[in-house]
């Protein structure tokens, strides 16, 4: 019997064969080690992320999240809803708050949900996985499970935007959050508290529609990591991970740089530190291999 149970909203990009399936694999491994049971919300749908607004108006977008929360309340009553994706978490929590504040929208959302025989109570706390780790598990317990400290691995913590704003983690600053640094230190790694690009935007969905503008920002994020002597960048966000990792060849072609900087998830770090192998830690999901993690996992 797991110690902690949550209703789980994995999100589109976490599915098999999707762009952050490696996040999913490593999160599942991490949760095994931390005795966390994730109960997937049956039949969840896309949250529309932060780019659905051209086609979807306010109410249709709120209804997307309302359906997920309603399904969670129906099938996993009483459990906090947890998301691993920054956009999923943000959209769901934003919807919950706006529907709480606006009785008119809430009534309309429920009118729409009735078409699918669902009803929203909207009494479910919406959490990011990082909140579960910090608030429910705590640094001490995270540290107690470490079997292979990330000794000598220098890691730039790239928190990004949507895990940090507008909600963020309670007690952390929007401008200089330190929880990811603390997690890295807890795992025995070497954090870089002065990494100045930790909350710089990567372009988000505009990496697809405005690649040049986005890549210019990503260049700065990687450059600063090199300046600090980082071995890799770690992030909690699927969009950050993808944008900062996969376009490095394009950035090199445009700017004449020679970037080859691994970008991993906190969950990759935790799975390795907890003694799991490269496959369980999803290190095979890296396009730029995190050699130091590969080596440690193989020991």
């Amino acid at each position: 019997m797991a110690k902690r149970e949550y209703a789980f909203y994995p999100g589109c990009s976490s599915q098999k064969g999707a762009s952050s399936s490696n996040l999913m694999t490593s999160v599942r491994t991490m949760c095994e080690e931390l005795d966390i049971q994730l109960n997937e919300i049956p039949d969840w749908n896309c949250c529309a992320a932060s780019i659905g607004y051209a086609g979807g108006g306010e109410l249709p977008r709120l209804t997307l999240s309302a359906r997920n929360i309603a399904l969670s309340e129906k099938h996993h009553a009483g459990q906090d809803l947890v998301a691993t994706c920054a956009a999923c978490w943000l959209s769901t929590r934003e919807a919950a708050e706006r529907l709480e504040e606006d009785a008119g929208l809430m009534a309309e959302a429920n009118q729409a949900l009735a078409e699918a025989d669902l009803a929203l109570k909207n009494q479910t706390p919406i959490k990011h996985m990082v909140e579960v780790l910090i608030e429910d598990i705590g640094y001490e317990e995270m540290g107690a499970k470490v079997k292979k400290p990330l000794a000598g691995i220098k890691i730039a913590s790239y928190v990004g935007c949507q895990t940090n704003r507008p909600f963020g983690i309670v007690g952390e600053s929007f401008e200089n959050p330190v929880y990811l640094d603390k997690m890295i230190d807890t795992l025995g790694g070497e954090s870089i508290p002065g990494y100045e690009k930790k909350v710089q935007c990567c372009g988000g969905a505009l990496a697809f529609s405005e690649p040049e503008k986005s890549q210019e920002m990503v260049k700065g994020i990687i450059e600063a990591a090199y300046d600090h002597g980082a071995d890799m960048i770690a992030t909690p966000c699927p969009v950050c991970q993808m944008n900062v990792e996969v376009y490095q060849p394009d950035i090199n072609a445009t700017y004449g740089t020679k970037f080859n900087m691994p970008v991993v998830y906190y969950s990759n770090l935790m799975a390795v530190a907890y003694g799991r192998n490269a496959k369980d830690a999803a290190l095979d999901g890296q396009i730029i291999r995190a050699k130091k993690l590969d080596e440690l996992a193989a020991k």
Partner: peptide
Amino acid sequence: DLSGFQQAIKKATELE
């Protein structure tokens, strides 16, 4: 439940 999903969003769109 694709039809339920689409009906719900259609309804939301109509209301808006």
